[in-house]
């Protein structure tokens, strides 16, 4: 390789951070917070370049960039990082986590610790997990029971876990990029999809999918991560400070997200959206079980799923 391929550690203070959304969103605010706090604790040590609005690419591109040295830090959903650590799909298993607190306890405990370790082995240093909020079912017509999904065309994330879940309810999956989703649903390529409440309001999807059913089937969880190459350039003391600041920021992010979720649901309802409670919870969970069965080996065995369920 040419000589200039060697990473120049003298420049390590410059820190390129990728954010998928704009300045006013929790995804960017969390990095402004981390930047400001680190400036207080370690003045002049880092120069943050926070690149917003997904200008550096999607989540997978950013994660690749972290491994290849072009990006030093970002947030990521665990779904994307499961390309390296398949066990992370445990956190995406449907109807496994009762609520935000349940998820928080699991990722703060031994399971979360093990996942962080697996991520570190793959070049992603994770100070803490974050919670993007629950994914809910969105539809053109009211859908509260799973049998109502039979034969409906559903926009799904292109991932076996999601496809399996909705196929279990008899829906026909179709892959549509998120930017085309509004159009596709307005014109009828799809009848339903699932998304967090914040994104539902953010993309104004209530205009085309007026019914939100609070299934909360998947808690969309993620991480704050730093690239290993960046991490290795820090002293032991600096690492401790960055970890502490980031962990505090993770809680800040979760709070922002919760506020955003509540505001989003209100906004949707004020604009003609209807929020419904799911019925026949047993039937929903029945469908989810097929996903658990299919993924139990990937996530580390049925006992891991049991441990999560038993976590108070």
């Amino acid at each position: 390789a040419p000589v200039f391929l060697r990473p120049a550690s003298a420049r390590a203070t410059a820190l390129t951070v990728a954010s998928l959304l704009g300045e006013d969103k929790p995804e960017t605010k969390v990095w402004r917070r981390i930047g400001a706090r680190l400036e207080q604790r370690l003045p002049g040590r880092f120069r943050f370049r926070i690149v917003t609005n997904g200008a550096l690419g999607g989540e997978k591109d950013v994660a690749d960039g972290a491994r290849l040295g072009s990006i030093q830090a970002s947030l990521s959903t665990v779904s994307t990082l499961s390309a390296w650590v398949p066990e992370l799909q445990l956190l995406d298993l449907p109807f496994l986590f009762r609520d935000a607190d349940h998820l928080r306890r699991v990722v703060s405990g031994p399971i979360g610790h093990g996942l962080k370790q697996r991520l570190a082995e793959n070049g992603f240093v994770v100070p803490d997990f974050i919670d993007y909020g629950a994914r809910h079912l969105l539809a053109k017509e009211a859908v509260t029971r799973p049998d109502q999904l039979q034969g409906k065309t559903m926009r799904v994330i292109q991932s076996p876990l999601h496809t399996k879940l909705w196929s279990a309810f008899g829906a026909v999956p179709v892959g549509i990029p998120i930017t085309e989703t509004y159009n596709a649903l307005a014109t009828g390529v799809a009848d339903a999809m699932d998304l967090t409440a914040s994104a539902y309001a953010g993309f104004k999807l209530y205009e085309v999918l007026p019914y939100l059913t609070k299934t909360a089937h998947i808690r969309s969880s993620g991480v704050i991560f730093f690239a290993e190459s960046f991490w290795n350039s820090l002293t032991e003391e600096e690492r401790a400070i960055v970890t502490e600041v980031s962990a505090e920021a993770a809680l800040y992010f979760n709070t922002l997200m919760r506020q955003d979720e509540a505001a989003s649901l209100e906004l949707a309802q004020a604009n003609g959206g209807t929020v419904l409670e799911p019925e026949a919870l047993g039937a929903w969970q029945e469908g989810a079980r097929t996903v658990w069965m299919a993924f139990q080996e990937v996530v580390g065995g049925p006992q891991v799923i049991e441990t999560v369920r038993d976590t108070a």
């Binding site: 390789a1 040419p2 200039f4 391929l5 990473p7 420049r11 410059a14 390129t16 690419g57 999607g58 997978k60 591109d61 690749d64 960039g65 290849l68 040295g69 072009s70 990006i71 892959g175 990029p177």
Partner: peptide, 23 residues
């Protein structure tokens, strides 16, 4: 790259690959 570009060669190539990988 020698002028301080953040995009080292491996990242440059994956970047090009993902640039053209849009549905």
């Amino acid at each position: 790259v020698p002028f301080g570009s953040a995009l080292l060669l491996p990242a440059l190539v994956t970047n090009a690959a993902s640039g053209l990988s849009r549905f």
